[in-house]
Amino acid sequence: MNDAVARQGLVLMGCGKMGGAMLSGWLKGGLPPASVWVRDPHPAAWLGEAGVHINADFPDAPAVALIAVKPQMMGAALPDVAALGGGKTLVISVAAGTPIAKFEEVFGPGTPVIRAMPNTPAAIGRGITAIIGNATATDAHLALAEELLSAIGQVVRLENEAQMDAVTAVSGSGPAYVFHLIETLAAAGVAEGLSAELAMTLAKATVGGAGDLAEQASEDPGQLRVNVTSPNGTTQAALEVLMDETNGFPALLKRAVKAAADRSKELSRDG
Rank of each mutant, 00 (worst) to 15 (best):
L66K: 01
Q154A: 14
C15T: 03
I131R: 00
L142T: 03
Q8K: 11
G172A: 06
T129C: 06
A188N: 12
G108A: 05
L47Y: 08
R126H: 12
M243W: 14
S195V: 03
A186G: 10
L10G: 00
Y177E: 05
L158D: 02
A122Q: 07
V190C: 08
R7L: 08
R126W: 12
Q163D: 09
G29A: 15
G19K: 00
V5L: 07
M200K: 14
A188F: 13
D80N: 12
L194Y: 13
F249W: 14
A45P: 02
G86S: 07
T111K: 01
D270F: 14
V106P: 01
G85V: 01
S230R: 05
L148K: 01
A237H: 08
A76E: 14
A169R: 01
Q154W: 11
I124K: 15
H53Q: 13
M200Y: 11
K258A: 13
I100E: 01
M74T: 05
P32M: 03
S264A: 15
Q72R: 13
I131H: 00
A50E: 03
L23W: 09
K70L: 09
G9D: 06
I54A: 06
G48N: 12
P79V: 07
T120F: 15
L31R: 02
A176K: 11
P221A: 09
L27T: 02
M18N: 00
H42T: 10
G208S: 10
